[in-house]
């Protein structure tokens, strides 16, 4: 069941998938600075976005994301303000 999610909650969930404390997850942080941002990390994040936001990610869009902020923007329309 998809529930509304705030940006803060999304960052918490993203941190959990990537093994990063949410407090240190800054939007300008480059994703490739995280060890867990490999192909399994991509799949984990896709699964989290699918399960918790019910959001379709266009083909190739995830791999174009360079920073945490890019990921937030990718799902932005599904986040509560």
């Amino acid at each position: 069941m998809v529930k509304p999610m705030t940006k803060t909650k999304f960052l918490e969930r993203l941190g959990a998938e990537l093994g990063i404390p949410p407090a240190t997850l800054r939007e300008e942080a480059p994703l490739n600075s995280f060890k867990a941002w490999d192909s399994m990390g991509h799949m984990s994040v896709l699964a989290m976005i699918d399960a918790e936001l019910g959001c379709e990610v266009p083909p190739g869009a995830l791999q174009k994301c360079k920073t945490v902020g890019d990921l937030v923007a990718l799902v932005g329309s599904k986040l509560e303000s």
Binding site: S39, M40, H42, M43, L46, P59, G60, L62, Q63
Partner: peptide
């Protein structure tokens, strides 16, 4: 194999 893209395809 682009695992994440294949996974994304299966989700749809």
């Amino acid at each position: 194999m682009n695992g994440p893209e294949i996974f994304n395809f299966t989700l749809k």
